[in-house]
Computed example of a mutant assay.
Amino acid sequence: MTEIPAKPLRPAEWLGGFTVLILCQLAGETLVQLLRLVLPGCVFPGPVAGMLLLLLILTRIGNRARPIIASADGLLGLLSLLFVPSAVGIMQYGDVILAWGGPLLLAVLGSTVLTLLVTVGVFLATDAWLARRRG
């Protein structure tokens, strides 16, 4: 069965989706800064709060989320451009990386393994919670 291709987005829809993404990040940053006024020790990152807000919005608007998703996909397609400055930094500070390469590599590998373990743990806990909730 062939799928009918979706109608292409108009420029205004792309702009609207991008605007929602930026406003969610701005709202997340604002909420975290306001929270830091009340709780100075709060270290919650603003972009993560913005992503949680975006998740809430996406669950509420359902099928009308197409412009937001298309804008996010477009940004993800450009994500590789963010690696260019880091590659230039590696070339510029090669001697520092050679001097500190061992501890740096150990820190990167350790944090990666820890992140994977925490991610798997959260997934398993969420899966078990959803299984109990379903019955």
Rank of each mutant, 00 (worst) to 15 (best):
D95F: 04
A131Q: 14
L56Y: 11
I22D: 04
A87G: 13
I90H: 02
L78H: 11
S111I: 07
L26K: 09
I90R: 04
P45L: 02
A27I: 03
L52E: 02
C24L: 04
F123G: 01
L82K: 08
G17P: 00
L37K: 11
I68Y: 00
V96T: 12
A12I: 13
T30E: 14
L55Y: 13
L21G: 01
I22C: 15
V120L: 14
R10W: 15
A107D: 11
L114Y: 10
L104Q: 07
V38D: 09
T126Y: 15
L114G: 07
L34R: 09
A128H: 12
W14A: 01
A87K: 08
L34W: 11
G94S: 15
A128G: 12
T112M: 13
R10D: 11
P40Q: 03
A65G: 05
D127C: 14
L55S: 10
T115C: 09
G77A: 14
P47D: 03
P67T: 02
M51E: 06
T119W: 14
L116I: 10
T126R: 15
L52P: 00
A12L: 13
C24K: 00
A70R: 03
L21Q: 02
A65R: 05
W14T: 02
P40D: 05
R36V: 03
T119Y: 12
P40L: 06
I57L: 07
F44W: 09
D73M: 13
C42V: 08
I68P: 00
V20I: 13
L31T: 01
R132P: 03
P85V: 04
A99Q: 12
W14H: 05
L75H: 06
L116R: 05
K7E: 14
R134F: 14
A128D: 14
G16D: 00
V122S: 11
T30L: 12
R60G: 06
V84A: 02
L82I: 11
I61P: 00
L114M: 12
L21F: 03
A49V: 12
I68Q: 00
L106E: 07
G62Q: 09
Y93G: 06
L79P: 01
I61A: 05
L15E: 05
L52G: 02
T119P: 01
R10M: 10
W14Q: 01
G62T: 08
L55H: 11
A72F: 08
G46S: 03
L75I: 08
L116A: 06
V113H: 01
A125E: 15
L21R: 04
A49D: 01
L109E: 06
L58I: 06
L56E: 04
T30M: 12
V32C: 07
R66G: 02
S71R: 01
L124S: 07
C42G: 05
L105P: 02
G28W: 00
L15T: 06
Y93V: 05
G110S: 07
A128Y: 12
I57E: 01
Q92M: 10
T115G: 07
V48S: 06
W129I: 13
I69T: 13
V32R: 01
L31K: 01
Q33F: 10
L117I: 12
V122I: 15
A107I: 11
G110I: 02
G110Q: 11
K7C: 03
M51Y: 10
L117V: 10
